[in-house]
Amino acid sequence: MSPRPEAPARTRRHLLTAAAVLFVLGLTVWSANGIGVSLVELFSNLGRMGRLIDDSFPPAWSFWPRLIKPLLETLQIAIIGTIFGSILALPLAILAARTVSPSRPLYWLNRNIMNVLRTMPDLFWAMLFASAVGFGPFAGALALTVFTVAVVSKLTSESIESIDMKLTEAVRASGGNWLETVFFSVLPQALPQYVSYVLYALELNVRASTVLGLVGAGGIGMVLNTQRTTFQYDRVTMIVLFVFLVVMLIEQLSAAARRRLV
């Protein structure tokens, strides 16, 4: 009979596991404390939940005619944000692609700025723009433009980095300068992916645009905010249902378009 091997010294791994568990536990207790999580509160408020449901249902069906215009405004914000953001994202994506970028410092700078832009939630941008240019859809469109630039340029630059560089070499070998390689090799190869990212951004933007109004940046969210603060939850529910329907519809359309592209 062969000798049994010693179980590997797992003290280090055990210590690491124990430390991780403690960390997670500590973070959780700290969070629960800070939030004031209490199941008692949750369940003792079930009565209020019943009242809320009473207030919210049935939805105020007759409210819908007043939702059409704000909803169209929402879509307009999403469309402008998507189109302008995507146009700006393309050159930035090329600069942010390691394999294609013409200059190292430019690549580095661009990458880091984009990383910082992405840390800010879309609604933060909406608040900032609403404060700078005033309440209304213009602020919302600007917020979504920045958001789109950050998302689309990141994804597109990754696609560009994974394209077939042999073709690019070929264009360069036949005497093409940097701009020509970009136009005749890089862009044609990355374009289908880019378009699908733009559609993806459109889906995100339609979703995001519905809540921009909560901070005064236009669209149906502004109506929502009014009804919410005056506790007309039957109207809130009507708005939520309406938004839900339109978001689903646009996502289905966009998803179908993306499937045909890729």
Binding site: M1, S2, P3, R4, P5, A7, P8
Partner: peptide, 15 residues
């Protein structure tokens, strides 16, 4: 389990 591993000559790879 160790006996079974022994029969196929893999005791030393147990871990």
């Amino acid at each position: 389990a160790f006996d079974s591993l022994d029969r196929v000559g893999l005791v030393d790879r147990a871990y």
